[in-house]
């Protein structure tokens, strides 16, 4: 999988989760679970690049960071999302 395909796959996973009414913010680990054939370092690089492009955004609790689609789910004024495994 090249980087562009990986990025598309990440967005697709995020959109599907939201469509199904699932989590709007996910950890890097969740992305890795969904894309087992990609290297974790490449997934991280692709996800961070998507943030730079404005297609994903970070959601930080201070101790961990999750990724979400911009404007979807809890945003600016939200408190801490209870971490889910």
């Amino acid at each position: 999988m090249n980087k562009e395909e990986l990025k598309q796959k990440i967005i697709q996973i995020m959109e599907e989760k939201v469509k199904k009414g699932g989590k709007t913010k996910i950890y890097l680990k969740d992305l890795q679970r969904e894309i087992p054939d990609a290297n974790p370092r490449e997934i991280k690089n692709a996800a961070n690049e998507l943030v730079r492009e404005g297609k994903l955004e970070y959601f930080s609790t201070g101790s961990t960071v999750m990724f979400g689609l911009p404007g979807v789910g809890m945003g600016l004024e939200a408190g801490v999302e209870k971490p889910e495994e």
């Binding site: 730079r52 959601f59 930080s60 979400g68 600016l76 801490v80």
Partner: peptide, 17 residues
């Protein structure tokens, strides 16, 4: 309350809402 989407462009750390 802490956490959220605030941050600075290009960085995924260093700012805590």
């Amino acid at each position: 309350k802490h956490g959220g989407i605030v941050g600075v462009f290009g960085y995924g750390g260093g700012v805590i809402g």
